[in-house]
């Protein structure tokens, strides 16, 4: 499992594309927001938590179709399925690899982009914490979506349609944590909910992902 994780990480870094692309997309979306809503600091500060979360979510979506598509193309997916490693562990490893190459960089980059949107000073810690807590769930849900659509040619668009509605709870709780943090309110409840969603995704979704993979490999 560790070896698979290492291999995926090496591929992601070497291929370049997925790694930097998500971050660049995150940056561009955040830069576009003020052009759309105007440069007023108060307005930007009000929408910053939500915009940062939505942009991070879309950026995480970008690299999802690479999770299994590359393995499918070069034929290593059936090999993974026949390896002694259970497919559930493969699914988990894939999700973790996606998070390390997408969710983690997004989390680290978010405070810098918060400055651009005039995010309230008290919210930076909560922004990083909520993204760190929420993006693993995004990666796991995305891995599930990627597994569903792995057999479909040009399935990327379909996968967005399948995955985005599943992102709703994570987005709601994540953005709520930052919003409350920005207003100086108590964040414990949404934070706990977000953690719960992530824990549930990590525990349960590898099984669904593995089931989808088995069906696709039949």
């Amino acid at each position: 499992m560790i070896a698979l994780l290492r291999r995926d990480l090496r591929l992601a870094v070497r291929a370049g594309g997925g790694f930097g692309l998500g971050l660049a997309f995150f940056l561009i979306v955040i830069v576009l927001v003020p052009f759309g809503v105007g440069p007023e600091g108060a307005v930007l500060a009000r929408i910053a938590p939500g915009m940062l979360w939505v942009a991070a979510l879309l950026a995480a979506l970008l690299s999802l179709d690479r999770i299994f598509a590359l393995d499918q193309e070069d034929g290593s997916l059936p090999l993974l399925a026949t390896s002694p490693l259970p497919l559930e562990a493969v699914a988990l490893a894939k999700g973790v690899a996606h998070w390390l190459t997408t969710g983690l960089p997004l989390t680290l980059a978010a405070p810098g982009l918060g400055v651009l949107l005039n995010l309230a000073p008290g919210a930076y810690g909560w922004l990083v914490l909520s993204l760190a807590l929420g993006t693993p769930a995004l990666s796991m849900i995305g891995t599930f979506g990627a597994a569903l659509t792995v057999g479909i040619r040009r399935g990327g668009l379909l996968m967005s349609l399948l995955v985005l509605p599943l992102y709703v709870p994570v987005l709601i709780f994540g953005a709520e944590v930052v919003r409350r943090g920005a207003e100086g309110m108590a964040v414990a409840t949404p934070l706990a909910m977000l953690g719960g969603v992530t824990a549930g995704c990590l525990a349960a979704l590898p099984f669904a992902t593995a089931a989808a993979l088995r069906i696709n490999l039949r």
Binding site: I172, I215, N216
Partner: peptide, 28 residues
Amino acid sequence: DTAADLTAVLCIVGSVFAVLSRYAVNFW
């Protein structure tokens, strides 16, 4: 058969998330 299997899996996972969204949206 693949379509039936995959949509069934999606339906089950989707149901869980639909209920989850219902509560999340209430909260929000």
